[in-house]
Design a protein around this nucleic acid. Sequence first.
DNA 1: TGCAGCAATTAAATCGATTTCCAAAGGCGG
DNA 2: CCGCCTTTGGAAATCGATTTAATTGCTGCA
Lengths: 345, 345
Amino acid sequence: MAKPKRGVPKKVRVPTIQDVARLAKVAPATVSNVLNDSRPVAAIRKERVLAAVQALGYRPNALAASLRRKETRTIGIVVPDLTNPFFGALVHRIEELAAESDYQILLVSSNEDPKQEAARIRTLLDRRIDGLIVAPARDEVEAVSHPIGALPPTVLVDRGFGLAGFDTIAADNVEAGHRGCQHLLELGHRDIALIAMDPKLANFADRIAGYRKALAEAGAGRRARVVTGGLDVESCRTAIERELRRPDRPTAIFAASYVATLGAIKAIRAVGLDLPGDVSLLGIDDADWMEALHPYISAVAQPVEQMATEAWRLLNQRLAGGTAKSARIRLPCTLHVRESTRAVR
Amino acid sequence: MAKPKRGVPKKVRVPTIQDVARLAKVAPATVSNVLNDSRPVAAIRKERVLAAVQALGYRPNALAASLRRKETRTIGIVVPDLTNPFFGALVHRIEELAAESDYQILLVSSNEDPKQEAARIRTLLDRRIDGLIVAPARDEVEAVSHPIGALPPTVLVDRGFGLAGFDTIAADNVEAGHRGCQHLLELGHRDIALIAMDPKLANFADRIAGYRKALAEAGAGRRARVVTGGLDVESCRTAIERELRRPDRPTAIFAASYVATLGAIKAIRAVGLDLPGDVSLLGIDDADWMEALHPYISAVAQPVEQMATEAWRLLNQRLAGGTAKSARIRLPCTLHVRESTRAVR
DNA sequence: TGCAGCAATTAAATCGATTTCCAAAGGCGG
DNA sequence: CCGCCTTTGGAAATCGATTTAATTGCTGCA
C-alpha cells in the first residue's frame, strides 16, 4: 500500500460539471440534461458525457443543485432524547423510509428542552430542509411555530397532537391508559398508582384520563393515585419509592412511559418488594429486554413502526404538494400481558 | 385563530440578503460584513442593517453560504443500527457535542450492510459534509474508502480500528475479552462459551483473542468454545440454545455484544436453565435495564460516552487543519460485576 | 491648497449546479 | 426549392450568499 506521507491533506479538487463538459466537449447544460434526463440528448453526445463522468468520477454538488432547485431532499428530525429506545426506533425507521426515497436526515436532539428545540429547528430551517418531523419537547409548540413563522411541511409525532396547522400523529393514549388500567382492574387491583413524568404533557394527561375513566367505570373513581415522577429515571424512582413506602401502598404500579417503567422496577427493588408478588407493574412503551428477564414486563406498546410509517407517509403527501387539511392520526396501542402483572392476593 | 383556508400552501418568499440590503440602503456585501463581522462597518450602517434584518426576520441561506465558503458545518454519521442502544448513545452524544460547536448531523444507517454503507456515504459526500464519523459495517472499509476516493476528515469508531488513513477509536476489546473471561475463571468456571456475532469482525476477533489468552493463562487453553451467533437476536438465541442443549453444556456464557447478550438471556430461559444458578452470563456492552431486573446482568461496559467524546475531539482536530498522523485510540472497558455471574457449584 | 494614504463601501466575480431562451440545423409540406 | 416547424445544442441568467478588487471619501501632513 502506497504511503502518501503528505503534510497537508492534499486538497484534491473535485471535478465540477464544467470539467465534465470540457472533457466531453459539450456544454455544461448538456451534461446536466444527460444526468437528469431533463431533455433529449443525441446518443453520441450522451455517450461522451457518460464516459467523461466515469473517467472523472464526477458527482454533482448537491449544494449547488439544491440552491438552484430550491429543494434539498433533506428532512429534519427532532427528538427529545435518542437514548430512549422509543425515539431510537422512531428515527431508525424514518431514516430507512427516507433513504428509500432518496431523502436524507438532519438529526437534532432537543434534550427535552423547548428552548433548545426552537434554536435547533431554526438552524435546520437555515439549511432549507424540505420537511420536518418533530417529536416536540412540549405540547405548546409555540416554540416550534411562533418565532419561526413559516415552517416547511411538518409532521408532529408522539406529542403536540392536534396542534393547528400540523399533521399530527400519536398513539391513542387515552385508550392506552384505559386498557392498561382495565387490565390491572381485571386482575383484582384496586390500589393502582399511575406514574407520569409530567402530567401537563398531553400524552400523560391522556393516559391519566384513560386510567381515571377505567377506574370510574369500575366504580373506583376516587381511588385514582397519580404520582408525578420527573423527566429522568432517578426522579421517577424516588417518587415511586416514596409511594411504595406509604402504609397504604398501591398493589399495582402503572408506569406511563419507558423512563417511568425503569424507575418503577428500580423502586420496587429498592423497597424490597417482590415483583409481581407484592406489587404488579404495567408499563407503557415496549422494549426488547422486557421479554428477556423474568418477570417479563407487561406493557402497553406504542406502535412505533407504524407511527414512523405514517409520519413519513403524511410528510410525503405534503412534499408531493398534497393540500388536504391537517391530518390527525391516532394509532392503537397493544397490550402485552406478560409476567409483571399478576392477580392481587 | 385565523383560518387561512388557502389551497396551495402560500409560498412565502423568504427574504434574501438583497432584500435586507435594499431596505437598509446598503450593498449586500455590507450586510454580509455586518453579520459575519468580517470587516468593520460604520455604526450608523450597522444599525440600519441590523434593524432591517430584524424587520424582515432575515436568516442567511446556509446552502448559498456553504457553496461559496466550501464548508457546510455538517458532519455525517454512519451507524449500523440505531436500534442498538450502544449506537443510540453514541449518536446522541456526538450530536450534543456537534451542536455545541454549531455543527449539524446528517445521520444515515447502514443496516450492517457494506453495500448500503458505501451508497449512503456517497450521498453524504454529495452534500459536501465537512467530516465523517463512521461505525463501519465491516472492517475492510474498502467499501468506505475505495470507490469514493477522497473522503473528508474521517473518524472510525468501534470498528475498523487501525485502518490506514483514518483516525480510529475503539474499546480495548482484547482487554475486554481478557478481563471478562478472567472474571469467569475466578468464579471457578472452566467451560465458558463465548458468543460472537461474527468472528471475522475485528472487534469479535479481539474479544475472542482476549478470551483465549485468559484461558491459556489459566492453563485451560484448549477449553475455548467459540460460538458464532449472527447479526440479530434470534440467530444468537438459537445458536446459544443449541450450545446449551449439548450434554457438555458450558457453565458460563460470555456474550460478546449487546445483541448476543439479549440472545443469551432468551436462550437460557428457553432451555429452562436457571440464571445464574445453572449458567452464568457475562455480557459485553452495558444498558440501562441490566441494572433493573434480577438477576442484574454483569457486563463489560464499553466507554460509549468517551468514545463519542474522543471521536469528536479527533474530528475537530482535523477540521481545524491538524495534520498529525492518524490517531489510534484504545479506550479501556470497565467490568461491572452484578448478579448474573456466580461461582460455579 | 494639494495630495498621499487610509478606511469604509460597493460593484463584480465566484461557488457549481439548473433552467431559460435563443440559434442553428434538419425535416417536411406546399 | 423555399419557408416553417421541430429538434438539439449551448450561451447566459439564476439561485443567494461570500469575497475580491475597485472606488469613494476623508484625514492629515507638507
